[in-house]
Simulated scan of single mutants.
Amino acid sequence: MPVPAVSTGRSNHRWQNKVVFQKWLFILSATTPAFGGYLLFTLYPNILSIYYSLLNWNGIRQPVFVGIQNYMTMFEDQYVWRALWHNLVYTLAAPPLVILISMVLAYILVNKGYLFSSIYKLLFFFPNVLSIVAVSLLWAFVYDGSFGLLNAGLQLIGIDTGSFYWLGEKGTAFWAVIPPIVWASVGFYFVVFLNAMSAIPKSLYEAAIIEGASHRVRLVQITFPLIMPIIRVSAIFLMLSMIKGFENVLILTNGGPSGSTDVIGLYMFNIAFGKGSHDYGYASAIGMFLFVILVLAKLIIDKFTANRDAEF
């Protein structure tokens, strides 16, 4: 009696289903922790903030629904617009300085061939290792009127400032916030630009040298265009961090004197958690407004900056 042929169609189908199941099981197991963390720590708090922004609530008593009243109050609040103006000035001042200094340092280290270049890399990157708190406390000591390094350095070159406290006057305190930000940020972007410049073929620089191009010409006409995508991304991160950041201002001046250094993030923080003020609803409304500003800033940067891949 002949043996019937074994059908392989059903077994192949089962095997394919098993492979597909294992594939999706691996994808879910690999992405669930990251996606779950995003939902729990990013998306859920943002959605909750939208709800809080419609309430009059101090975190303890029963919340009262007030609709868009918090937003109406915010648009009439002169301190919000003053803080936003400070954010705008800091955003226009600090990121260009960080990018320029980082690019120049990286270009020098790549093209000059100094001895012990690894030591220079370590020294330039060291401020980035420090926390914002440590950097701010360090610069608060630099600006101190009695024992500050800035006053001591000026006295060495014949400029007697006495015991002038740089963070105690409106005019000087406002601009004194920028150097700590630049000093703490240059190290990271120096490494970014250093790696980008190291990838540029040396033959391009050699051809420019033969043509008699100076270092300035090589930097502007060769290096700058070829690493433009890196510069663009760096500018986006720097500008967004300047708009939403406030930790260094909190430690250096806490927005003083008389609100002359206040920024929108610090103003929101003080409303929510400051002494004698716990208006979570109003702070959430400001937070939503800040979110819209960040999105618009990103769209504006994308609109007016080229997004081209470097080719060489």
Rank of each mutant, 00 (worst) to 15 (best):
G245R: 03
S234R: 12
K244Q: 15
M197W: 03
N254V: 06
I181Q: 05
K244V: 15
R218H: 08
Q221D: 13
Q221E: 13
V220P: 00
I222Y: 04
I209A: 14
I181Y: 08
A196V: 08
A196M: 11
A184Q: 07
R232K: 12
I210L: 15
K244Y: 15
I227Q: 05
F224W: 06
F190R: 11
L240W: 07
I231Q: 06
M239Q: 02
S234Q: 07
H215N: 11
I210F: 08
P225Q: 05
I236F: 04
F237D: 02
V233I: 15
V249T: 12
L194G: 05
Y205Q: 03
V233Q: 14
F237Y: 07
F190P: 10
Y189A: 02
R218S: 14
S214W: 11
P201Y: 10
A235M: 14
R218N: 11
L252M: 15
P229C: 08
A207G: 00
V233Y: 13
A207R: 01
M242P: 02
I200E: 00
N254A: 11
P229A: 10
F224A: 05
S241H: 01
R216W: 14
E206A: 11
I231E: 09
A213D: 08
S203C: 04
S203E: 15
I230K: 02
L240Y: 08
S234I: 13
V249Q: 12
V220M: 10
Y205G: 07
V192Y: 01
A207Q: 01
V182I: 13
I230W: 00
I210P: 05
G187A: 07
S241A: 15
S214R: 12
Y189H: 10
I209L: 14
Y205I: 04
N254G: 07
S214L: 10
I236W: 01
V186H: 04
R218F: 09
T253Q: 08
T223D: 05
V249D: 04
L194N: 12
S198P: 02
N254P: 01
S241E: 08
I251T: 14
